[in-house]
Design a binder for these strands. Structure first.
Length: 194
DNA sequence: AGCACGATGCTCT
DNA sequence: GAGCATCGTGCTT
């Protein structure tokens, strides 16, 4: 399988968010190669997007979003959960795609164990299933070196993809709160042919 | 099956 | 010191 190159991420964030649906998220953990298909994403686009962390400008936390595309932006929230994002657009423009759900397809049993048998559907759940924490913040997802990368996969046809408002932006003002910048697979599941 | 709420700690004001 | 791109439990229907 081929790693998705940096040029893929150096494009409009909405395009990247849509095209990451179906891609293979790969994580090497304790010598095991865990793989999940990305089934849900959200776009966060620049300082003018009041749902995006970069709305407050460049800070220690958001610095990664201002860096080159194709890197991981991992942050901690609600006192419990790690969120995995992929930095998009040109260096200097803060934007990223939040990976909200995966469908485990290789070593699914390991990921299930790490979740005590519960599902991996949710942004904080997939990072727990794949062992992604602040250690992975800032790593280059276009190389295998750090044990976390994204591989290309067959395109998911438009009829299988839905979009809607982003989740959890309770206090974000309109129009940002309702922008249809969330992409997800219908029925939460891709046909893996077996 | 759905909703309400508490957990829990980091980041920014 | 408040708020937060969430999750799991427990209670209600």
């Amino acid at each position: 399988m081929s790693i998705i190159p940096r040029a893929f991420y150096n494009r409009p964030t909405l395009t990247v968010a849509r095209e990451l649906i179906g891609a293979r998220l790969v994580r090497v953990l304790n010598g095991q190669k865990l793989v999940g298909l990305i089934t849900e994403t959200e776009a966060y686009i620049g300082e003018t997007d009041l749902g995006c962390h970069a709305k407050a400008g460049r800070t220690a936390r958001t610095a990664v979003m201002y860096g080159p595309p194709g890197h991981a932006y991992v942050y901690f929230t609600y006192g419990h959960h790690w969120m995995l994002n992929v930095v998009t657009e040109r260096e200097g423009f803060p934007a990223a795609v939040l990976v909200r759900a995966i469908q485990p397809i290789e070593k699914a049993e390991i990921m299930s164990q790490r979740r005590s048998g519960r599902d991996t559907f949710g942004p904080g759940k997939l990072t727990q299933a794949m062992g992604i924490t602040k250690t992975e913040n800032g790593i280059d997802l276009t190389r295998r070196g750090a044990g976390l990368w994204i591989e290309a996969a067959p395109a998911v046809p438009a009829r299988l993809v839905t979009k809607g408002p982003r989740v959890g932006l309770y206090t974000v003002p309109e129009p940002w709160k309702s922008k249809p910048w969330r992409f997800l697979v219908k029925d939460w599941r891709l046909d893996t042919g077996g």
